[in-house]
């Protein structure tokens, strides 16, 4: 976890720095009275780097991925649940009462 988490922190810091630089750039534009057409190229590069680092960290930090294999041996569906909402009580088991002397005390 250590390395991945560290990379994630760096990524977030880079993204924060990119946001900060953009704000700075916009105030600079306001002073020089120019139109804002897009972020400067170094901010864009920063953004991409931050995105890559954050994505990588988000994929590695939480742990290993488990594959979804519907036909893997442990995972395959062997039976459906009994439809208990539709259960009826006058079934053939009625003819053979249980000889169980359980009682609630």
């Amino acid at each position: 976890m250590g390395a991945g988490f560290f990379v994630g922190v760096i990524g977030v810091l880079i993204l924060l720095h990119a946001a900060y630089s953009t704000i700075q750039y916009r105030t600079l534009l306001k002073i020089t009275d120019e139109q804002f057409s897009g972020a400067p190229i170094n901010v864009v590069i920063e953004l991409i780097a931050g995105l890559v680092l954050c994505t990588w960290a988000a994929l590695t930090v939480p742990g290993k991925f488990l594959s979804i294999l519907p036909h893997s041996d442990e995972n395959r569906v062997v039976s459906l649940p009994d439809n208990l909402d539709f259960m009826i009580f006058n079934h053939r088991g009625k003819a053979f009462p249980l000889d169980m002397d359980v009682k609630l005390k």
């Binding site: 649940p81 259960m87 169980m100 359980v102 009682k103």
Partner: peptide, 19 residues
């Protein structure tokens, strides 16, 4: 959880807990 219908077992073991 699995919604199984094993009423006899549920009855036996459930009662032993409840008692």
């Amino acid at each position: 959880k699995l919604k199984l219908r094993r009423s006899d077992k549920v009855l036996k073991h459930g009662c032993s807990i409840l008692n």
